[in-house]
Design a protein around this nucleic acid. Structure first.
Length: 887
DNA sequence: GCTTTCACG
DNA sequence: ACGTACGTGAAAGCT
């Protein structure tokens, strides 16, 4: 027999370590709600191990549940183990599926633990075989010999520490087998067996250096001088001998497997791909696909798929263009305002002919242009907003948008992955599309493949799109979201496309001037801070700043982050009077943020038309809000005057035009009052009084005509906010800077005065637990799989989310409806005015000054009346020459 | 790529 | 005992 390389893994120990090495239970979950963190980490570990050791033989040993010979010997053995988290337990069966995919044998055995299986196999190896034992449990180091190296995981599971006999000699001055004796003396708290009273590692080592083994120690007890320790040794003799036996790994278990049985077969690609798909391990799947090519994929495609015919066209002509098509435009850049089209493809959904066309040629083709713009030609699109923008930038109109795969997929479940490859898997369809990353690569290595591979990939995409329309439609209908999809999100996509294409005019000179001024101020402040610190350092480096503040200047440490000292603003504010450097840093941070993010950041997005074209991302947030990116125009400074002046740079597109802004007042609290049907809050809104003052009166039991001072109002406002966020005493105490008990009393009192709100909060959490999701007034769903988590923090977070999402989400529904109505009204009245921005509870338009009066009548009215609630919706509005002057 | 900080509603 | 207010995106430093 030739030289073998045998890897023996302690599966039970490693799986458990894997679970704790990635504790992001929110993210590591597949579409069935199964947690996957331990499987993911274990998979990564396997990859590393196979790569590092290149085994010829490999086995993963598991503990079997139930009693072992050790528990028979000592009933309490491992008796103190806390309950295994359910999030871990549910993953256990899948380790075997994973190992099947890897072609790795696994084994467990009644009465014995994984260590014993490993111990036995390690002794069956020939002396010229190399045996590698891997575990998270240091007890296994007793197995080390000249040809057995024991590796123990470190730092979660990312590093392996090698224990050879030499290492053990160096570390402890012990032979590997004496590890057993050491355990006998010390016991093991995690396995719950006792050692000798008051003997720890130090004393145990000393005794073993003198006596070698536990048995010998008791034989030669007279060599020990009388002492408390000696008494303990004598009293605990039974424990020591028993524990020594418990710690000893059995090396002659009657196994039904031998070394020949555990030869490594290599990955079973199909099985492993299926497993990755089921677990949604996209990166591993991509890797595997890249390693193995497409062949494995092709076999899986069942025969009942349509018969596709792929046609490459040089000149797009009318007979290439069907009545019903799935159309896809490929671009690698995420920011489609700036990107380069690399492919164009469509499928005739009746004949299943797939057309691949040259983009530059197609956009010149009159037939293609006419077809795109003709609403009677139905188009299935992947991301209709993106397509509209790309086509508009090429001067083409897009009409006849029949279906948007991305929006449908997002509404069905906001967590779902956004690639076609995933969508096929989620809908139990053949995986005929690769991941983009497998085709294009990522980061610096991203590139367009040769045209054969590109065309193949694109053709597969429109095949997938054709297959997905029906199941997605059906699910939207089943989940009662067809209305939301059809009457809110789809029309909104068109509105947003127009806003993005329109863009907002920005005066680059204003930004440049302010930038210059702030750069000069920053330089001055920098010098001042160096002076106060007594040395120069990088103020932007949290690490360096931490050293200056908390080590050199010895300021009190209020909060730590997982990497060091926290220097966040709320921490620094508490230190403000301790040292003059603190206010200086706070100011520096503020100015530096304005300068870096806005004054330096924004101009890079101004296009040749003098405008910024942000992207409003419609399929991202968990609540239904929009987000804004490249750049984010939803976080332009507003709260602090100096920052707010940056808005002066945002101006109307034309001379003689103005901006028009309209925002909902207290929309989230109004939504809450309506959903919770709280009569007190509804009455307050109906009366038109200031809601925070009304809250203060009610909560503090004051007369209706009492004047509420600013501080009282501020507290009531904070509580109102807290209610909307899914309140906790901890959060409120932090926000108001008051003791937690105080905050708790506050909340209890609030709930007493607003019992319907309290009832709603309890009901919505109960509903989330029962159904697994919450929904908005318009049936938008958010699944909350963590609502039953065993971890307090994770569960609490899900509970607060259950309270907040229907509120935030309904408010988002309402403004979306309003936007669609506003756009319709503008079109209908033939106004030149147009929507530019939407910032959660406000919209901004621009138009000729003459139209401002029309807008003042039209826009607030639409916003207030587009949805009928049991509380009035109130809108404030304004017109001005720049965004700063607006409201 | 991850972490921290900070801008917005 | 646990230790977070809800929802986002961008910049900068660090590894």
């Amino acid at each position: 027999m030739s030289h073998k390389k045998i890897v023996l893994l302690d599966g039970s120990s490693l799986a458990f370590r894997a679970f704790f090495s990635i504790l992001d239970l929110e993210r590591f979950k597949n579409k069935d709600g199964l947690h996957t963190n331990a499987l993911f980490s274990f998979n990564r570990m396997l990859e590393n191990i196979l790569d590092q050791f290149q085994p010829t033989h490999i086995l993963v040993a598991f503990d079997q549940p139930g009693p072992t010979f050790r528990t028979k010997q000592f009933e309490e053995y491992k008796g103190n183990r806390q309950k295994t988290p359910s999030e871990f337990k549910e993953q256990l069966p899948y380790f075997r599926v994973l190992l099947d995919g890897y072609g790795i044998q696994y084994y467990d055995m009644a009465d014995y633990e994984a260590d014993d299986i490993i111990g036995t196999l390690s002794r069956q190896a020939d002396s010229d075989d190399e045996v590698i034992v891997i575990s998270g449990d240091k007890d296994l180091t007793q197995l080390a010999t000249d040809n057995v190296t024991v590796y123990i995981t470190r730092k979660g599971v990312s590093e392996l520490e090698a224990y050879t006999p030499e290492v053990i000699r160096e570390k402890f001055d012990l032979e590997p087998l004496q590890i057993i004796e050491m355990k006998g003396l010390m016991g093991d708290s995690s396995d719950n067996y006792p050692g000798i009273t008051r003997i720890g590692e130090k004393t145990a080592l000393k005794l073993l250096h003198q006596f070698n083994t536990v048995a010998e120690m008791y034989d030669r007890l007279d060599e020990l001088k009388p002492s408390k320790m000696k008494e303990n040794i004598i009293n605990d003799k039974a424990n020591a001998l028993m524990s020594r036996d418990l710690a000893e790994i059995i090396t002659n278990v009657p196994l039904e497997k031998n070394l020949e049985d555990i030869a490594y077969k290599g990955k079973q690609t199909d099985l492993l791909m299926d497993f990755y798909r089921q677990m949604q391990f996209n990166s591993f799947l991509t890797q595997l696909q890249a390693q193995t090519g497409l062949e494995a994929e092709a076999e899986e495609v069942p025969a009942d798929l349509p018969l596709y015919q792929v046609i490459e066209v040089d000149q797009v002509q009318a007979d290439h263009l069907p009545d019903r098509a799935a159309l896809y435009i490929e671009m690698l850049e995420e920011n489609y305002h700036m990107g380069q089209v690399i492919g164009l493809v469509w499928q005739d959904l009746d004949s299943h002919e797939i057309y691949l066309a040259d983009w530059d040629q197609a956009i010149q083709s009159p037939a293609f242009k006419a077809w795109l713009a003709d609403a009677s030609n139905q188009k299935i699109l992947f991301d209709s907003k993106r397509d509209q923008v790309i086509l508009a930038n090429a001067g083409l109109d897009l009409a006849g948008i029949d279906f948007d795969i991305m929006i449908a997929n997002y509404l069905i479940d906001t967590h779902l992955a956004k690639e076609l490859a995933d969508m096929l898997t989620n809908n139990d369809m053949p995986s005929l599309v690769k991941y983009d990353e497998a085709v294009y690569g990522k980061g610096a290595k991203q590139a367009v493949p040769d045209s054969a591979e590109l065309n193949d990939h694109l053709a597969n995409k429109v095949k997938a799109m054709g297959l997905l329309v029906e199941p997605l439609t059906q699910q939207l209908k089943d989940l009662h979201m067809w209305d939301l999809y059809q009457t809110i999100e789809m029309p909104l996509a068109r509105v947003l496309a127009r806003m993005e294409i329109q863009g907002v005019k920005v005066d680059a000179q204003i930004l440049a001037d302010k930038n210059q001024a702030l750069l000069e101020r920053l330089a001055q402040m920098e010098a001042e801070i160096y002076d106060l610190a007594g040395e120069e350092f990088n103020i932007n480096s949290v690490k360096q700043l931490g050293v200056i503040l908390f080590e050199k200047l010895e300021l009190p440490i209020i909060k730590k982050t997982k990497t060091g000292y926290s220097t966040a603003a709320d921490v620094l504010e508490k230190l403000a009077d301790k040292h003059p450097i603190i206010p200086a840093i706070l100011e520096y941070r503020q100015i530096s943020k304005l300068q870096g993010t806005y004054l330096a950041g924004l101009p890079t997005y101004i296009k040749e038309d003098g405008k910024i074209h942000s992207r409003f991302v419609q399929t991202l947030t968990q609540t239904g809000r929009l987000s804004s990116a490249d750049p984010n125009l939803q976080n332009i400074p507003a709260r602090i005057e100096e920052g707010r002046r940056i808005r002066q740079a945002f101006v109307p597109a034309h001379e003689g035009w103005q901006l028009f802004g309209a925002d909902y007042s207290q929309i989230e609290l109004r939504v809450l009052a309506h959903i919770a049907q709280d009569q007190h809050m509804i009455a307050a809104f109906k009366s038109g009084e200031d809601i925070h003052e009304a809250t203060a009166r009610r909560v503090f039991g004051l007369d209706p005509d009492t004047v509420i001072d600013a501080n009282l109002r501020r507290q009531a406002k904070a509580v109102n906010f807290g209610i909307v966020y899914g309140i906790s005493d901890y959060g409120l105490s932090n926000n108001l800077n008051i003791p937690r008990k105080h905050a708790k009393a506050f909340i209890e009192n609030y709930f007493e005065k607003y019992p319907d709100i309290h009832q709603f909060m309890e009901d919505i959490v109960a509903e989330a637990k029962e159904k697994g999701y919450v929904e908005t007034l318009f049936k938008r769903r958010r699944y909350l799989p963590d609502i039953d988590a065993s971890n307090f923090n994770i569960r609490s977070f899900a509970e607060r989310t259950a309270m907040n999402s229907p509120i935030q989400g309904t408010a988002a529904d309402i403004i979306k409806i309003a936007m669609v109505r506003i756009q319709d009204a503008l079109d209908e009245k033939g106004l030149q005015s147009r929507l530019l921005l939407s910032v959660h509870d406000e919209v901004i338009l621009e138009g000729p000054a003459e139209e401002m009066e029309v807008l003042s009548d039209l826009v607030p009215d639409i916003m207030e009346s587009c949805v009928e609630l049991d509380v009035p919706l109130k809108v404030e509005y304004n017109q001005a020459n720049d965004w700063y002057e607006l409201k």
